[in-house]
Computed example of a mutant assay.
Amino acid sequence: MRMNLHHLAIFHAIAETGSISAAAGRVHVSQPALSRELKDFEGRLGVVLFERLPRGMRLTEPGKVLHAYSARLFAVADSAQAAMRDFADARTGQLSIGASNTVGTYVLPRLVANFRSTFPQVGISLFVGNTEQVAQGVADLRFTLGFVEGPIRVEGIVAKEFSRDELVPVVAAQHPLAGRKRATPSDINGLPLLMREPGSGTRELITELLRQLNATAGSIVEFSNTEALKQAAIHGGGIAWLPGISVTRDLQDGSLVRLPIDSLAIERSFSIIRREGAYEVPAVDAFVGMIQTSSVCSTV
């Protein structure tokens, strides 16, 4: 059985809005007609997609799986529509950007603001996640452009370095290693570590470094956000590797202390990633050109 895209669009609208009435308004269909269409769709699939609640609709487990697919499908459709609308003029259009945590939090906001001052008619959406999520989103055409700080493991992606940064090993001022003038990698064996989540390019780099140094991690607490990780480090949660761009003030005011172990520092590249062979609308080229001629390298 081939899935009916009209039915899928109705399902997606209900999943996104959480109610029949709101979905009916979104797809311009009456509520009774939309309910019939949904019932027919569930019958064709042989599964129940929603739990009918007194106030709204809740996805069942099959519904959650289908929603993951529909979200990706309609994100690609939106990107395709934007590309067709915008490929004549850099002064208009839509940029859909994915960025890993450090670049998306500390680098791109300023650059996006600068770009918008020159091209105010260009709409920009920015997703911030980990390197794996961003690379997959570029490959799937959900993002027209990606910015990452770690190794790429997704096929069909081309990367170009645009800046560099250092991952700084830090601890809170009261940490036992904070007062040391000299230490070795073995001194961190068994100590608690603060890390990004699996799929993070930062975590992959740190894990490989520890392997090379034969250093043994203690307990690990995972964070999906660099700022949350930094706050945990400041409050004595353990050893963390944080982007140099994010800890300048914290090192100056003494709330964080750099570990005196030079071999634990990691230099890494920030890269622009695109889908190999993909057509780039003028707005994308203008944004990339601005980054390549900006002073980002001297501030990161």
Rank of each mutant, 00 (worst) to 15 (best):
S100K: 00
T216P: 02
I152H: 06
G289S: 10
L259Y: 02
I124H: 04
L209R: 15
L5C: 03
T248R: 12
A13W: 02
A265R: 14
I124K: 09
Q31E: 15
Q31V: 13
F11K: 01
K230Y: 06
T105L: 06
R180H: 11
N214M: 11
G46I: 07
I239N: 00
A24T: 05
R26Q: 15
N225C: 03
L111S: 02
E267D: 14
V76F: 10
D253Q: 09
Q94K: 12
P109M: 03
M3R: 14
D165R: 01
R91W: 09
Q292F: 10
R153C: 06
T216I: 14
L210I: 07
K160Y: 09
T17K: 14
V168M: 11
V122G: 03
H235W: 10
T17H: 15
P185F: 05
A278G: 08
T131V: 07
A232E: 12
P54T: 08
D187R: 07
E267G: 11
L145F: 08
V247D: 02
V168P: 00
S269Y: 06
M84I: 09
D165H: 07
A99E: 03
P185N: 07
P260W: 04
L229F: 06
V47W: 02
V138C: 07
T17C: 12
N130S: 08
L38H: 01
L111E: 09
I239A: 03
D250Y: 07
N114A: 12
H7I: 05
R110D: 15
K230D: 01
Q94E: 14
T60D: 02
L210E: 00
P198I: 11
V103P: 01
F50I: 12
A232T: 08
E161Q: 15
Q133F: 04
L259S: 03
F287C: 01
A82R: 11
R116W: 04
N101H: 10
A159I: 09
S246I: 01
L193S: 10
D40R: 15
R36H: 13
L5K: 08
G63V: 04
R249N: 13
I272G: 00
R55D: 05
R274I: 12
Q81L: 14
V107E: 11
V76I: 09
R268E: 05
P62Q: 02
P260A: 13
V122N: 04
H235G: 08
E37C: 07
F11N: 01
V47L: 09
W241R: 00
L213F: 10
L45N: 00
T144G: 15
G129A: 15
A33L: 03
R36W: 04
A217N: 00
L5Y: 06
L229I: 06
R26M: 12
R249M: 10
G254W: 05
A286M: 11
A178T: 09
R58H: 11
L205F: 02
R153A: 14
L259Q: 05
F119S: 01
I239C: 04
R58Q: 13
A178N: 08
R2L: 11
